[in-house]
Amino acid sequence: MHLKKNRIFDIIVYIISFLFFTTLIILLSGIFFQTSAHLFFKELENHSLWNSVLLSFKLSFIVISINLIIGIPVAYILSFKKSKISFLLDIISTLPLTTSPLVIGFAVLITMGSLNPIGKFFIDNGLKFVFTPQGIVLVQLIISFPFFVNIVKTSFDSINRKMIDLSKTLGASSFDILFKIIIPLSYNGIIAGLAMSWSRSIGEYAATQMVSGVIPNLTETAPIEVFVKTSYGNYPAAIAIAGILMIISFFSLGIFKYFNYKTGIKNSGSNR
């Protein structure tokens, strides 16, 4: 009787999971059923497609470079300098994760617009954030930053504080500690964070669209290109770009999961 119950349990769990995975795979790969290999590869020869993909790559690499430079000090503050306001700082840095991207794009559009004193200040000093690539970098930065910081912070959190204290007494300054101990011990977390924020940035649509102005070759990123092509009714082109974006996501997620698993294995082992 007991054995039977467990069997039923297994069957239920397997069936539900199976349904979930097949539904998702069918939904996502469904776009390829509406095109042919011939059409797909023909679209890949199109220059405007590659221009948009290249632009997306270029901008997202700028975004993750800035993430890396800003994210590590912020993660350091959140993880090592815990204080009464750490909780608040944590919420603020994670806020873009739960806010609608459209709202973030809208906020940047308004703040950086010429009617706003802040926007006016930047425009007067030659920095335009509306309908420009730097505007896209700005919104994608805001949106992808929490992914990077949270993953790196978790990685920093797992470092033994007694070890950090001890290294101070061996003559390590804060710089030494960051570059020789904390960062090397968090390589996996940093790479996982970069992969995650990069795929978030390259796939970003809503906020980007708000500030992009859809200027071909200048601000027309790959996801926007998908929307534009769809609205013209050019489905084969949209499908081709969507396919490329999907493959990119798959691989960057693969990188993230791989390094995240590695961190997990390392931390579950003895930490000496």
């Binding site: 033994n160 007694k162 070890m163 204290d165 001890l166 290294s167 101070k168 007494t169 061996l170 003559g171 390590a172 300054s173 030494d176 020789k180 101990i181 090397p184 011990l185 390392k266 930490n271 000496r272």
Partner: peptide
């Protein structure tokens, strides 16, 4: 500052730096 005093700690756990091998650990300071 702590790192300028020459008063190294040895604690109940060895707390070796796991990103370095033994000789790198020893030569750290």
């Amino acid at each position: 500052e702590s790192y300028k005093r020459r008063t190294p700690l040895v604690m109940d756990e060895p707390l070796l730096f796991s990103n370095m091998n033994v000789i790198e650990n020893i030569e750290f300071g």
